[in-house]
Amino acid sequence: MPSTPSPTPHSVRSNDEERVPSPNSDLIDHETFDQLLEMDDDDDHDFSKSIVWNYFEQAETTFGSMDKALEVRDLDELSKLGHFLKGSSAAIGLTKVKASCEKMQHFGNMKDETGTNTISEDDAITKISTLLEKVKDEYKEAETYLKNFYKERDDS
């Protein structure tokens, strides 16, 4: 009888080892982000990286649109853009950006940040101008963090 070769040993890296170190717990929702990482192949992060880079692109386009909409005081558009970026930020797990986008969605609807009370148009525009700068900062922070994260992974 032919003998079957014995299995060659090799190591297995569990998904749990791939947890993201978390300096800012409110910046990223790790449960969500880990879920993306889990979908990666073993040897690279091509999938999650493509998602994240895709998000960067989309976010920057959206910020551009927000700037324009703010210039022409198009609250409706701002609300829609807020909603849009809220969605993709949530998908990545960018908690802060998501929260700010949600506020923008409300302001765009001329509501306060909880979405319950009505505010004036001028008030909404003012709030959005401030918020837009803030959300851009939050985005930068997340971008830097994520880019570092992937850089470390690629290096290791």
């Binding site: 979908m39 493509s50 895709n54 989309q58 849009f84 969605g87 993709s88 998908a91």
Partner: peptide, 16 residues
């Protein structure tokens, strides 16, 4: 979905 992020994530999950 019009959001590329969701398109990709959703596709990946569904593919899996």
């Amino acid at each position: 979905d019009d959001d590329a992020v969701y398109q990709n994530i959703g596709s990946k999950f569904l593919q899996v």
